[in-house]
């Protein structure tokens, strides 16, 4: 296999090096890619969509159809991971372990038995290890600010680097950080599995639904101009608002899909304490 791999890599590399000889020089302002379509995007975006961040405008409007499917890609990955890994065994295992948080005593509960009524018990797994106090505290302090920043990145995507994907990933990472610093059960208490899964779909649905709404209002799919009468703005601002709506959809979808994929992967689909 090693020799085949080497031969394939060398042949492909040779072809690519051979072809690279004909490329326009790197960073050449006169290359076809820089002179054909991109000047239109750079010069007309503000007139046509009223969004200063050209990447956002191209992403969510000129090529918004790509972006919708990009969100769908991540949603399908979430569904595929869930379908592959999630074990739907009996909800209660035969024996469960609980740890009394104040004393550190571990209690074994047999099948059908009840836990003594107290708030201080924490469900643990056999491979439980104590958590570091410093990490737990620092993360707890950081997470609200991370989430605030995530919301800012989504909302300010029109004017600065950012947008739905970036903000969604930051928001998702905040919950994943909670799962890493505490354990997966703590994170699932905040974002239940069913809620998580449904919100993934709803995020994509916001995007596709906006497009379908444009179609129902009589214009082409994803033509945000159609939203102008609904939003009470002119047709250029309607594009800007349309971009914001779909970016929020993307943010929701990406955030929850990231959490969903993480919880399935880190626990092997068992939804126990995770990593």
């Amino acid at each position: 296999m090693k020799i085949i791999g080497l031969i394939v890599a060398v042949l492909t590399g040779g072809l690519l090096v051979y072809a690279a000889g004909d490329f326009p020089a790197w960073s050449d302002p006169a290359s076809p890619a820089s002179t054909y379509l991109s000047p239109h995007f750079i010069e007309k975006t503000i007139e046509e969509t009223s969004v200063p961040n050209i990447v956002t405008a191209v992403l969510a409007d000129y090529r918004g159809f790509d972006t919708m499917f990009e969100t769908t890609v991540i949603f399908s990955a979430g569904v595929a991971v869930f379908l592959l890994l999630r074990t739907s065994g009996p909800k209660t295992q035969q024996t469960r372990l609980y740890r009394h948080q104040l004393t550190g005593v571990t209690v074994r509960i047999k099948e059908g038995a009840e836990l003594p009524p107290s708030d201080n018990f924490e469900r643990i797994d056999r491979f439980w290890t104590p958590h570091d106090l410093i990490i737990k505290t620092v993360c707890r302090l950081l997470i609200p600010f991370i989430q605030l920043f995530g919301l800012y990145v989504i909302a300010h995507g029109h004017h600065s680097p950012g947008g739905g994907f970036q903000g969604g990933v930051i928001l998702g990472a905040s919950i994943i950080l909670l799962a890493i610093s505490h354990d997966l059960r703590t994170a699932i208490k905040r974002v239940a599995e069913k809620l998580d899964a449904v919100l993934c779909a709803i995020g994509v649905l916001i995007y596709a639904g906006t497009g379908a709404l444009c179609l129902l209002l009589g214009l082409n799919f994803l033509d945000y101009k159609a939203l102008a009468p609904v939003l009470h703005v002119d047709s250029i601002m309607a594009r800007s608002h349309g971009i914001l709506i779909v970016e929020i959809g993307v943010g929701v979808a990406v955030m929850f899909t990231m959490i969903w994929i993480y919880s399935n992967l880190s626990s092997g689909g068992k939804y126990n304490q995770g990593l």
């Binding site: 890619a33 379509l37 991109s38 995007f41 750079i42 050209i54 990447v55 191209v58 992403l59 090529r63 790509d66 972006t67 990009e70 969100t71 890609v73 991540i74 399908s76 990955a77 979430g78 595929a80 991971v81 592959l84 890994l85 994907f165 994929i261 399935n264 992967l265």
Partner: peptide
């Protein structure tokens, strides 16, 4: 701006493929 937009898509596709591959 166009390559940046395209690569945002490719990055997302890469993450999605990685997730399914690990699963």
């Amino acid at each position: 701006p166009l390559p940046h937009v395209l690569m945002l898509t490719a990055i997302v596709v890469g993450v999605a493929t990685l997730g399914v591959a690990l699963a």
